[in-house]
């Protein structure tokens, strides 16, 4: 069962730290399944209003994030892609469709209710609106910290 899920798994990655925790969490599953990881970073567009940051600036940042991904998943089959869209979760679903992903996997990021309200709760949208399996992976480092 697991093998099928991680055959072509889409990893939405938000930032450097997210790249590390997600890759760390997904690595054993990928190794077991011999699957491929598709890391996607979404560049959010305002669709008419001026964007907060220049697209070029965020593309550079995405390349930095992908460097972290490639390093963390070194030796495995990894693909990276920048996706653009006004709605982050929609864009992730579109990318999953495009790559014919077997599942979408992510580690939830911490953040207060306030921050979630301001930035949008992508995790919730991913779980509720999905059309394919979604795997929520535990943040291993955090789990270890909390355990001790």
């Amino acid at each position: 069962m697991t093998d099928g899920l991680f055959e072509r798994v889409l990893l939405p990655i938000a930032d450097d730290e997210d790249a590390e925790t997600t890759c760390r969490a997904v690595r054993p599953h990928l190794e077991a399944a011999g699957g491929r990881a598709i890391a996607v970073h979404v560049i959010e567009k305002a669709g008419g209003a001026p964007d907060k940051a220049s697209v070029e600036q965020r593309e550079l940042r995405a390349e930095g994030i992908f460097d972290v991904v490639r390093e963390a998943l070194a030796g495995l089959d990894v693909e990276t892609d920048i996706a653009y869209g006004t709605d982050v979760s929609e864009t992730i679903f579109d990318a999953a469709e495009e790559f014919d992903a077997t599942a979408i996997a992510f580690t939830p990021r911490s953040g207060s209710r306030w921050v979630r309200m301001l930035t949008g709760d992508v995790a919730l949208d991913l779980i509720t609106d999905t059309d394919r399996p979604v795997v929520v992976l535990p943040d291993r480092r955090k789990a270890e910290r909390d355990g001790t």
Partner: peptide, 10 residues
Amino acid sequence: NEVHDRFRTP
């Protein structure tokens, strides 16, 4: 020009 990790703003 650092982009904020969470807010993705400069």
